[in-house]
Design a protein around this nucleic acid. Sequence first.
DNA 1: TGCTGACATGCCGTACTGATATGGCTAGAG
DNA 2: CTCTAGCCATATCAGTACGGCATGTCAGCA
Lengths: 296, 296
Amino acid sequence: MEFRQLSYFIAVVETGSISAASRRVHVAQPALTRQVRLLEEDLGTRLLERHARGVSLTVAGKALYDEAVQLLDRRTQIRTRLSALGQGLIGKVSLGVTVTHLWVPEVAALLRHYRDRYAKVAFEVFPLLSGPQLERLREGSLDAGILYLDSAEQPGLQTRLLQHDHLMLAVPEASRWATRPLNRLRELNDADFVWGFRSVSPVYYDRVMAHFDRLKFEPRVVQYGADNITILSMVAAGLGIAIVPSASSAHPMPGVCFLHLDELTACDMPLWMAWRSTNDSPALHNLIGLVDEVFR
Amino acid sequence: MEFRQLSYFIAVVETGSISAASRRVHVAQPALTRQVRLLEEDLGTRLLERHARGVSLTVAGKALYDEAVQLLDRRTQIRTRLSALGQGLIGKVSLGVTVTHLWVPEVAALLRHYRDRYAKVAFEVFPLLSGPQLERLREGSLDAGILYLDSAEQPGLQTRLLQHDHLMLAVPEASRWATRPLNRLRELNDADFVWGFRSVSPVYYDRVMAHFDRLKFEPRVVQYGADNITILSMVAAGLGIAIVPSASSAHPMPGVCFLHLDELTACDMPLWMAWRSTNDSPALHNLIGLVDEVFR
DNA sequence: TGCTGACATGCCGTACTGATATGGCTAGAG
DNA sequence: CTCTAGCCATATCAGTACGGCATGTCAGCA
C-alpha cells in the first residue's frame, strides 16, 4: 500500500473507470491497471469489479476509498503543518523578560510586532529576573530571555546585544534631592538608600557593586525591596532614594523623580537577548530576526 | 513523503542514530541516510541535527515523528480492516425472512449460527413477505432473502433451494374438522375459510390458487387476515379453517390443529434463498455458505 | 595524536514504474 | 444479428529509484 497506489485508486473510483482515471492523473492506462492490481494483491482483497464499461467497487473497495481519501488528506495536512513549523508560522516560543524592561518601548514593540506578525505561534512571555532566566535557558524550559549578563560569552548560549542601560538615581519628588542640583555621588554619603537583595538579582547587583567599588562609594542602606517596583514605591513613599537601571525611568512613577549623574551614567549595563545555541526552533529564530528590526 | 521513508525516519528517531536504525530495519546505513535526506528535501525542512554521536530531532522532526507514527498505525489498521472485510468477519448483512419461517428450526439455526460465528458483522433480519423481499433485493436495500419464488430463475438474482414446504390445513381444535377424519379436499366444500390477501403475498397465493385450479376446488372464503399469524388467530377463534404453508405448523398455536391432506401435501412450495448476482459482499457469501451446513 | 564510531558520498546492479503496442471482451448502434 | 467503439488486460522495453558496497570526512575520546 503506497500513497501513489492510493491516489491512483481514488482517481479510478471517482472517474468510474481506469481509462478515465488515466487521463485525469496523466498516466497511461496499463500503468493504472497494474498499480490497482498490485494494490489488490498487497491487500489480499479484490477492490474493483471490472466490466466492459468501467469498473465498480467491491465492499472492500468502498471501505478503502473512504480510508484512502482520509489518509491522503492527512498527508497534505502534515505537509502544510511541517512547512508552517519550518517557517516558524506555528509552534511555541517562550520568552523571559525582566518586569522593568517590559516598559521599555523597544522591548514592548518587539513583543507586539512578534505577536502581530506570527499570530498563530503560541508566544508566552515570562516576567523573570536575569538569574532565573539564565537557569531556565540552560535547562531548556525557556526559549529566549531578555536579561543582564556578566559577559557576552555564555557556555551553550548565543547572545545578542539589545541596548545599553546605565544607572540613574530615583528620589522622592518631595525631597531635597529633587530640587537641589546634584553632581557627585559622594554628595549622597548621608542619604538613606532603598536597596535590593543581591540574592534575587546577582547579575545586576554584582555589576552595580563593582562600579561603586571602583568609585569608592558605599551607600547607607536603610531599607530593602524585593524588586524595582517595590523599591520605587518605597522611594515614592519617601523612605529613601535608590539606584535603578535607566530602563526604569521608561515607566513614569508618581512621586518619583529620576536624576542623571555622570558617575552613574558611566556604569554600562548592557541588555542582552540570549538563547540556547542548540535551539533550532524557527519560531525562535523569527523572534531573533525581529530584534534586528526593532533594535537598530 | 512515502511510507517507507516514514518508517525509516521513525526507526532513526527511536534508535537515536542512523546507523542503529539501519541495523534495526536491516537496511544499509547509506540507504537510510539518503532516504532521510530525500524526506527532508521533499518536505522542505530539516528533520534531524546530525552530530558526531547520532542525531537529534529538530522541531519539525519531532512533529513529523508523532504524525508519522499515527500515519503508519493508520495504515496497518486499514490493512486489518480490509482483510477482515474481505473475509466477511466485519461489515453488514441484511436478510429478509417471512415471519412464518422464523419458526422453522433450520432457519432459526441458520440465523443463530451466523450470529455466533460472525459476531462482529452487523446482521439485520427484516421480517418481510416474499413480494417486498423481491423488491428490496432488486433495488439493493436487502442483501439476501428467504422467500417463496415463482421460479428458480430470477433476472439479476441468484437462488438456492432451502427446503420444500407444502400446504396444510389449519382448523379450530374445538371444531368438527379436528376430530372427524378427512381425506379429500372436496369434503371442505361447505367449510368457512379464512384467507389472505393476494395483494400482500402474490407469490404465495398465485401458487396456491394454481394448485386449487388444477384440483377444481374453490374455497368458500368468509374472512380475510393480513398475515399467517392473524389468520391462525382467527382459526383459533373459531372463525373458520385455513390453508397454510407447512412451515406454519412449526409454531404451535393454542386452539389450532394442523392437518395433513394428500391433496395439499402434493402442492410443492419450494423455499429459496435469493441474493443479487452482483453482490460480492463476503459477509453475505459467508451466510450463503452457512446454508450448505444447515440445510443439507 | 591516533582511534573509534557516526554520517556523507560515489558507483553499480536490481527492481519498480510508466509508455507503447496489442489483444480480448462487452454493450450499444445500425 | 452484426459491427464497432470503448474499456480492461498483457507483453515488452526504457527510465528511474532504491539498496548495497567501498570509501571519505568529522567529532569525541583516551
